[in-house]
């Protein structure tokens, strides 16, 4: 069943919020500086975390763009005047 316009907008906002969180987690500010990392999935663990976050951003952002309505016409603004 297709999503309603309001549901699409809410889901899109939620996705953009999740993307912001992934960006925050991708930077290893919370790790001990200078620590020698473990190798996870072939990369230093903090790099694996960062790259996983960016894969997540790509997927969520792609979905967000699918949900985005880019209109080709400017929405009509009700001027408040009554027509004759």
């Amino acid at each position: 069943m297709p999503l309603s316009e309001i549901a699409r907008r809410r889901l899109r906002r939620l996705l953009l919020f999740a993307i912001a969180l992934l960006y925050i987690v991708s930077v290893p500010w919370y790790r001990t500086t200078g620590a020698v990392p473990d190798v996870v999935l072939g990369l230093p663990d903090w790099v694996t975390v960062a790259l996983s976050c960016y894969v997540g951003v790509a997927v969520l952002n792609s979905i967000a763009w699918w949900l985005t309505d880019v209109p080709d016409e400017t929405p009509r603004v009700d001027s408040g005047e009554s027509s004759p």
Binding site: L16, I19, Y23, S26, A50, L51, C53, Y54, V57, A58, N61, A64, W65, T68, D69, V70, P71, D72, E73, T74, P75
Partner: peptide
């Protein structure tokens, strides 16, 4: 990788309003 991807994220703030 993160900063190149951020370009397409920030476009959300411009494209839907600018295009029409």
């Amino acid at each position: 990788t993160g900063f190149m991807m951020s370009i397409i994220v920030v476009f959300h703030a411009l494209v839907p309003r600018l295009r029409p």
